[in-house]
Write a protein that binds this DNA or RNA. Structure first.
Length: 815
DNA sequence: ATCCTGATTTTTTTT
DNA sequence: AAATCAGGAT
């Protein structure tokens, strides 16, 4: 299978490519056809292996760039990998698909939208948009929003989608189980789905779900992509969910190999929507296949090639809350019995002591694939552990230590402070500001989630997709135009009744029943502005509201930057902000200017027709904006300390790492204790530890304010899992160990933060199967399972949900 | 329709 | 402590 190096024109590249790789790395890079599982411990050079493998496939002529689909989880990772592949290949990366799951699916769906009953201008709703829509659906279904919050309902729907369950599947299951909660959920899900389709919109989960639908319903489409992507590579495979697994399955293999897939993955295919199979012309133009490779692809048959290379580390699986399933990586060899397996255990990042701490911590998890990280970087310093009086003292300690390190010559860009929840950044920020140390916070309040940015985007979105009710609702009265709740409701009702787009309904205010003259006039002015902008965007308004897919807006003539600027000016949005004359408004204006700048950059970057796929520039821009997380905006600025959550830190490395808030209830988080997902918290700790190259600082506070009220806390149980000889624990006097004469034991005191208040003292945790229990938050229930480690499974009467609880710590008792 | 005020709630983690 | 929400006044 391997071409001999002598005949290969790239021979010198090849040896260069393999130089400096260790044995298992080289094995992974040079693996030929067929499934490949790369178990890559933290810091073991997995990105290197992935990028070199891509280059190797191309140099050995096993694949053209356009035949490679490389998938990451974040845009940042995609960009990084793209840069590195370019470094190896030069310009030969053109045509390669190197992007996130969501971006790849969005691109495919844009090209094939008509097959599923959408137009190519479909909107992508982020979580906030989706939630707003769920709220409306729940409202329409008569659900009490107090009892079932839109957030809870959306989570349930999202989870269902990640399991590839459509509303109809939930309905079937609900009837079978006779659960009123499930019936209600199915109601909301149905309404939500109907609205999404009507608005020509997809939520995040739909991107995956609909892509799977597409491949399942249309074999020809699936075959086309299957033939196109001869090699599929996936990074962070431990974080894939069922939908992603299924998608890969469809791309590289024939049958679903996993038995016992959650519920009926087949039932939903028919459910996509009424119009799905309804005779849309098969589009040929949208196929993302370049001329040459298309020809080559056609020569090959569509027999699944099984060329799937996945890289991951089960010990770093930390996204189960969003549907990720570690089993995907654990069972890879069952899914692909002929898989070649490579283990990367040599770590090139951290000193020995840090790795020993990490190994010791993760050893407390059961199951998983045995790995033992080692490095040649020497012993290194011990892990620093500090106990502080409260969170302010902790922040001062962290900042003081940062000042010392910087004085000694450490670059600020080499220092990161990690915490469990976004809210925890505030105290540390305060301390940094006080000492005048520049920093950046990754994640948290996101640029693209700011109201003014979302407003601006909504304007553009409505121009592209006249069906988008969410965007319309958002901007119709922003800035204030005198179109309030009542008028808005009338417009929406009218659009609904007449079965026309909101745009069309709003364009003729006179025909809307019950609309006040003032409101009608305001609406008329608003729509005149929008029509103007739409004309500026390069399209007549005549196709708006038709069910026929409209042509893409041609903004090429002006550019999106200009369109955006015109939008902000003519809508009166900027004017309204300027009139406020507040510092806050000034900040908003600055943000908007930044967004215009982003749009201009986009215009420049796509000037040379790099857009491809025959997709409109505006759609592409909006899609790009919808799919970027703020974590991508990390700057490698020399002068900034970096603050972020542990989740955001995955994949990164720093010379010096602080992990703060190591208290039970904070980390591990109280909520995860309730749900019995302690092992995932431990993996998160493992991820945090392994970010550190040289120095690792762990800290906790004995007292910490939760919701404004101070609470006493206990140091994290995870700290006791690190062998004492690895620790440098200066504050030994105040250090507390259970059973050594402390005033409380870790059994009585518990979960920090608000959960602590719910805990009764001395509740001895022993529950039996079938016992009736009552929980402080979830109400009455019955024990349906008793697991190891004091974990019990309880089915609650209230909502029929089944939850795993830590009997010892959850506020649950016999009744 | 909009603004003000007091009450209530918030803290996982994110593509 | 801060942000969001509900209800009532303007």
């Amino acid at each position: 299978m391997l071409p001999s190096m002598g005949e290969n024109p790239h021979a010198e590249h090849l040896s260069e490519l393999l130089e400096g790789l260790n044995e298992p790395q080289r094995e992974a890079v040079t693996h030929g056809e067929g499934p490949l599982l790369i178990l890559a411990g933290a810091g073991s050079g997995k990105t290197r292996v992935l990028t070199h493998r891509i280059a190797y496939l191309i140099f050995t002529d096993q694949a053209q760039p356009s035949e490679i689909l490389a998938i990451t989880f974040t845009n940042k990772a995609a960009r990084e990998m793209s840069g590195r592949v370019e470094g190896l290949l030069g310009r030969r990366t053109r045509g390669m698909w190197l992007m996130t799951f969501h971006a790849a699916c969005a691109r495919i769906l844009r090209a094939e939208a008509d097959r599923l009953g959408y137009t190519r201008q479909f909107t992508i709703y982020d979580q906030a948009d989706s939630r707003r829509l769920v709220r409306r659906s729940a409202d329409a279904a008569g659900v009490d929003p107090k009892r079932y919050t839109p957030a809870l309902l959306h989570n349930q729907i999202s989870a269902a989608k990640n399991r590839l369950q459509a509303a109809a599947d939930l309905r079937t299951a609900a009837s079978a189980a006779g659960s009123p909660f499930a019936e209600m959920l199915a109601d909301v899900y149905e309404l939500y789905e109907r609205d999404l389709l009507r608005m020509n919109a997809l939520d995040f989960d739909d991107l995956l779900f609909r892509a799977v639908n597409l491949f399942e319903l249309f074999g020809d489409v699936r075959d086309r992509y299957r033939a196109t992507f001869r090699h599929v590579l996936v990074d962070e495979y431990q974080d894939t969910n069922y939908a992603q697994y299924r998608l890969l399955q469809l791309l590289v293999a024939d049958q679903p190999l996993r038995a016992g897939a959650p519920a009926s993955a087949d039932g939903d295919a028919a459910d996509v929507d009424g119009g799905a199979a309804g005779g849309y012309a098969v589009s040929d133009g949208g196929a993302p296949v370049s001329e040459g490779s298309a020809a080559r692809a056609r020569e090959r048959d569509s027999v699944p090639h099984r060329n799937l290379a996945v890289v991951g580390d089960d010990s770093q699986s930390i996204y189960s809350f969003r549907g990720a399933d570690v089993r995907n990586i654990l069972d890879f060899q069952e899914h692909f019995p002929d898989a070649h397996v490579v283990k990367l255990e040599q770590n090139y990042r951290s000193t020995e002591r840090i790795l020993r701490a990490a190994n010791a911590v993760i050893a407390n998890n059961r199951g998983g694939i045995a790995k033992r990280l080692w490095s040649e970087l020497g012993e290194g310093d011990r892990v620093h552990l500090r106990a502080l009086d409260d969170e302010h003292a902790e922040a001062r300690f962290v900042v003081g230590e940062i000042e010392r390190l910087v004085d000694e010559g450490t670059s600020r860009s080499e220092i990161a402070v990690l915490y469990r929840t976004n809210a925890a950044s505030r105290v540390i920020e305060d301390a940094l500001v006080r000492r005048e140390i520049a920093y950046q916070v990754i994640g948290g309040t996101k640029f693209y989630e700011r109201a003014e940015i979302k407003d601006a985007i909504a304007y553009l979105t409505l121009l592209a997709n006249p069906f988008d009710v969410v965007s319309f609702t958002r901007i119709v009265n922003s800035p204030r135009r005198g179109i309030g709740q009542t008028s808005l409701a009338r417009v929406l009702a009218h659009a609904n009744a007449m079965d026309i787009s909101v745009w069309q309904a709003a364009s003729e205010p006179s025909s809307i029943a019950g609309l006040s003259t003032a409101a009608a006039k305001a609406l008329e002015r608003f729509m005149a502005t929008m029509a103007e902008l739409r004309a500026l965007a390069g399209t007549g308004a005549e196709d708006v509201g038709d069910d026929e897919p409209s042509e893409f807006l041609d903004v090429r003539a002006h550019g999106i930057g200009e369109l955006l600027q015109a939008t902000l000016a003519r809508s009166g949005y900027l004017e309204a902000l300027e009139a406020e004359r507040t510092i806050e408004a000034e900040g908003r204006i600055e943000n908007l200017e930044q967004l215009v700048e982003v749009a201009r950059e986009f215009d420049l970057a796509t000037e040379d027709g790099a857009l491809g796929d025959g997709v409109g520039a505006l759609e592409t821009f909006l899609q790009q904006v919808a799919l970027v997380a703020d974590a991508d905006a990390r700057r490698d600025d020399e002068s900034l300390i970096t603050l972020m959550t542990l989740h955001n830190a995955k994949g990164l490395e720093y010379e010096v790492v602080f992990i703060s808030g190591l208290e039970d209830g904070v980390f591990p988080h109280s909520r995860s204790l309730d749900e019995g997902s302690l092992e995932e918290e431990r993996r998160l700790f493992y991820v945090g530890i392994t970010r550190a190259m040289r120095e690792l600082y762990l800290s906790y506070a004995r007292r910490r304010a939760a919701f404004g009220t101070p609470m006493t806390g206990v140091r994290s149980r995870f700290l006791d899992e690190i062998p004492a000889d690895l620790l440098d624990e200066v504050d030994s006097l105040e250090r507390f160990r259970p059973g050594l004469g402390g005033t409380f034991s870790s059994r009585e005191a518990t979960a920090g933060g608000w959960a602590r208040a719910q805990v009764r003292e001395g509740a001895v945790a022993s529950f039996r199967l079938g016992e009736d229990v009552v929980h402080a938050a979830f109400g009455e229930g019955v024990v349906t399972g008793v697991e190891a480690d004091g974990v019990i499974v309880v089915r609650f009467a209230g909502d029929g949900s089944e939850r795993k609880l830590m009997a010892e710590y959850a506020p649950v008792s016999r009744r």
